[in-house]
């Protein structure tokens, strides 16, 4: 079945895939032209998202594995929060992004910094990225925790015996060992973020924009959202079909490539640890 889905998409989508398709803006009611703004928007979105989610996720994992006192009551609570965050539907994240980031944080920023002028109190790439960061947080926390857990306890003792403080131990011994796992988590999060649409529906994605987002409060086009829009709201389905297939193919290739890189990175670092 996997083969059927992929085969169908690759077969139909390949034909229209060209350099122009990847580098041009949509034209003629999105029946012609390319998807460059959507690719750019996706990249910008996941970049911002990564900047937010990696530090937060990695530090949370470090807390759970290295800093929390043994038997602390907080550890199960944080784990529970992570697990449940992973189960929250994507659309609920979208609602939250709108209710919290856009309507609350954004409005307050406008109120205090811009005298009530509408700057951040509207859907924007920043809010979409932060919403997406929350969605991908569990992925980063769980993979980082796994990587930290794989570092032998003996190495931590060595660091302490050499007079390391806790942070020195983490910084000089644990993190260099765990960096592969952390990278894997980051890439998986990016792959997840590049594929999700529901959280950005109301927090910043746009149907059609002829320009690229240049400010944090700009709206943006995004591949997944572009697929959704073209599939369900296109005025002329038959005319957009080849473009649509190619867009789906690009999105698939992107997420698969990211997943594949994650697997490679993990394997590479595992081998290095064996040696």
């Amino acid at each position: 079945m996997l083969v059927v889905i992929l085969g169908n998409i690759v077969y139909v989508g390949w034909g229209h895939l060209s350099w122009e398709f990847l580098t041009q803006v949509p034209r003629a009611g999105m029946t012609q032209g390319g998807i460059y703004p959507a690719i750019f928007g996706t990249a910008a979105l996941v970049l911002l998202m990564t900047l937010a989610v990696l530090p937060l996720g990695v530090m949370t994992a470090i807390y759970l594995q290295e800093y929390a006192p043994q038997g602390s009551r907080w550890v199960p609570l944080v784990r529970l929060a992570v697990q449940n965050l992973a189960g929250v539907p994507a659309i609920v994240f979208g609602l939250f992004g709108l209710g919290f980031f856009v309507s609350f944080v954004g409005r307050e920023i406008d109120h205090f910094l811009y005298g009530g002028r509408l700057v951040y109190g509207q859907p924007a790439i920043l809010w979409a990225a932060l919403t997406m960061a929350l969605l991908t947080l569990p992925t980063v926390v769980v993979t980082t925790e796994e990587a930290l857990r794989a570092v032998p306890q003996g190495l931590r003792e060595v660091a302490y015996a050499l007079g390391a403080t806790r942070w020195q131990m983490v910084h000089h011994v644990v993190l260099p060992q765990a960096i592969g796992g952390m990278l894997t988590g980051g890439i998986l999060a990016v792959s997840r973020g590049a594929g999700e649409v529901a959280p950005i529906l109301f927090t910043g994605a746009a149907y059609y924009l002829p320009y690229l987002p240049t400010h944090l409060n700009d709206q943006f086009m995004e591949l997944g959202y572009h697929v959704y829009v073209m599939t369900t709201q296109s005025p002329d389905v038959e005319a957009t079909k080849p473009l649509l297939y190619s867009t789906v193919l690009v999105l698939l290739l992107l997420t698969f490539a990211l997943n594949f890189v994650a697997v490679l990175v993990r394997a590479q670092f595992r081998r290095r640890q064996m040696r």
Binding site: G154, L155, E157, V158, A161, P176, R272, Q273
Partner: peptide, 10 residues
């Protein structure tokens, strides 16, 4: 301190 098994850091 030196431990019972060699513990070189990677």
């Amino acid at each position: 301190m030196v431990f019972s098994t060699p513990t070189p850091l990677p």
